[in-house]
């Protein structure tokens, strides 16, 4: 395996945006798990954020198209489910980008698994006015990975990227 080429591929992948949240790349999202070469293939291992995430097909098509355009041989996407994707894999830079985009980033360590009742993390600051006077509107927001919150201070409704 050629480490130089692997590095280049990672750099190319960093230019491919998440179709739903175009400010972060597929690398920053943490869905790319491995880049490998075999004799005739470029093998990219990915893992879905949510098992039914409709954006995954777009990820795959974008990765194949971008790499093939750059002249890489037969690009093959392999999907793995283990270890399961977690919001902990998103970089600090990615979290800041989410916030700047108007999405409250996941608050690490707040995924209280095993509880029948929960109303999400205690405080989700509004990405617009930074007020902590916010409340959960629905555990399911515009996509499966987000919850809908509303800010009592500025009146904005915003997405919160759930911790999983």
């Amino acid at each position: 395996m050629n480490t130089e080429s692997t590095k280049q591929i990672w750099q190319i992948l960093e230019t491919i945006p998440d179709p739903e949240i175009p400010v972060i790349s597929v690398v920053e999202l943490g869905v790319i798990r491995k880049v490998e070469f075999t004799d005739s293939e470029t093998l990219i291992t990915i893992t879905p954020t949510y098992s039914g995430c409709p954006a995954m097909k777009v990820f795959e098509d974008d990765i194949i198209k971008t790499l093939e355009e750059k002249g890489y041989p037969k690009v093959v996407i392999k999907t793995v489910f283990s270890p399961a994707w977690t919001t902990d894999w998103m970089s600090e830079v990615a979290l800041q980008k989410l916030l700047d985009f108007g999405i409250a980033p996941p608050q690490k360590g707040t995924n209280d698994k095993g509880v029948l009742f929960a109303s999400g993390p205690k405080e989700v600051p509004c990405p617009q006015c930074k007020s902590t006077e916010t409340k959960l509107l629905s555990q399911f927001g515009s996509t499966a990975c987000k919850a809908a919150y509303t800010c009592s201070n500025c009146g904005e409704t915003f997405d919160y990227f759930k911790c999983i």
């Binding site: 098992s51 489910f81 399961a84 499966a144 759930k162």
Partner: peptide, 13 residues
């Protein structure tokens, strides 16, 4: 392991 994360949300909801 993957589905548990999702089902936990469905259950709470």
């Amino acid at each position: 392991a993957k589905s548990l994360k999702e089902t936990t949300y469905h259950m709470r909801h």
